[in-house]
Amino acid sequence: MTHAGGYIADARIRAAEWLPWVFAALCYFAAPSYLTLGSYILTMIIFALSLDLILGYGGIITLGHSAYFGTGAYVAGILALRLTGEPLLGLLAGTLGAGLLGLFTGLVILRTRGLALLMLTLAITSLCYEVANRATRLTGGADGLGGFSIRPILGLFSFDMFGKTAYLYCLVILFASWWLVRRLVYSPFGASLTGVRENNVRMHAIGAPVYQRRVVAYTISAALAGLAGALLTQTTQFVGLNVLGFELSGELIVMLVLGGVGRIYGAFVGPLVYLVAQDYLAKRFPEYWYFGIGAMLVLVVMFARGGILGIIDAGIARLRRGS
């Protein structure tokens, strides 16, 4: 189930790949009181996909991906408050805004590597956070941005208080994002990203414009993160400062690692498991919850680098060998 791409990979959609969608549709009917959480999970899956693209496939380690998520969220919020509550326009604006920020910051920071790059991603997020915190007139600062309403999607489907429309809206957007990411991963571009991650020196030696590839991947990833942010703004009708926080970036990494890095569906499994567990445990046992998350990270790094999906893969492989 790893989706490694490359020139001999079979890019056709496998039967098992329809499972998440069937599951998501079932949830809509089976758990109507959890649709708000469901929408949030779907949104975070898009965000995790965007991180997977640069971290899992591109090998760019970032502690600041929330900068783009937050930009998308604020752009969509400000647009809804000041200009129009048209949802698709809001998504577009959030995506473009974050993509542009991704392009500019990517052009600048991707010239560096290692600790410097890690620091730069962190510094940029911190800077965005400070800007949003101080520009109270535009962003509402620490109070957050609210008081806007989102118009019906395509003029047909209005957002209801049970979150039904929001859930389906998120699901459709996630489906589109998944389809695009999947195409990208299996494309020659995706293969070349793997090359950059695997061996940078060799990539240069075969005449690949490594810097350019990294910038393009970073921009796409940022745009996708912005899309997720805009989606969160529209489904919750509120933007808080935490969308730009370092904590969110950290949580996102945890989710992706939990699911499995560099395998598309890790970005599905991770947020689902993490957020459902958080919903059950975090409020009741906050200390134990954080301890558990920390221990889980340490264990994953020490023993199960493929995350949950990696463990499942290994299990299946063992069964096959056994039989």
Binding site: I61, G250, I253, V261, I293, G294, A295, V298, V300
Partner: peptide, 17 residues
């Protein structure tokens, strides 16, 4: 680097708790 980052973030979470 990724493993080291993840591992140490894990340590932070545990110590905070």
């Amino acid at each position: 680097e990724l493993e080291q980052v993840l591992f140490t973030i894990g340590l932070i979470f545990m110590s905070v708790a």
